[in-house]
Amino acid sequence: MKAAIVTFPGTNRERDMRVALKRATGRDPLMLFHRDALPPGLDLVVLPGGFSYGDYLRCGAMAAQSPIMRDVRAFAAKGGHVLGVCNGFQILIEAGLLPGGLLRNATLRFLSMDCHMRVERAGTAFTSRWQKGAVFRAPMAHGDGNYFADDATLDRLESEGLVAFRYTDERGEATEAANRNGSARNIAGILSPNLRVCGLMPHPEDLVDPLMGGTDGLPMFESLADAFLPA
């Protein structure tokens, strides 16, 4: 698999993402900066977490306008796979590649803790190693992760199976207590209609090795590795 990680001034989770991709695929991803062009022949583009451009204006708003995002939009338009985690999810939303918005956490607090998610859509390039309904743990660290969309958009996401992950408790119940940032319908991650663009707030890349305290997040990267096995 040929993957590239795109960074902006203020990105800070790119190394974690690199470790996760390398562990699952055996190949070191290409590290790109916002002024670089996206090279041809990529299978996957990843926008990692951080605080791009100091979260000025709105989280992800500045990065969404940076030169490399033109290439990322074109890559996605041609059916390329794009993963955005945390700030990367915010950037995908600001770039119009995924619908909705991410508001300040309902508690106004920056949330830095583990959460649990239930896999709502299996069988995609990002989730094929999980069964639908599987529950896994992932760290989260964000101030603006409160997913919002109007009811029509939420209904469409649900009916078309584009909700990828939902916040739940350890047993997989989508309770209010498990939905710490206040997201609409406990939504933690969503997919584009062609299932090739995925954004989520928590960090599966930070649980891919027993040394990190677990491997709950590894299936996401193994799924991606499976999707792009050399023919």
Binding site: L103, R104, N105, A106, T107, L108, N146, F148, G182
Partner: peptide, 8 residues
């Protein structure tokens, strides 16, 4: 739209 900042 929830405005937690305004609420605080």
């Amino acid at each position: 739209v929830l405005d937690p900042q305004g609420k605080a």
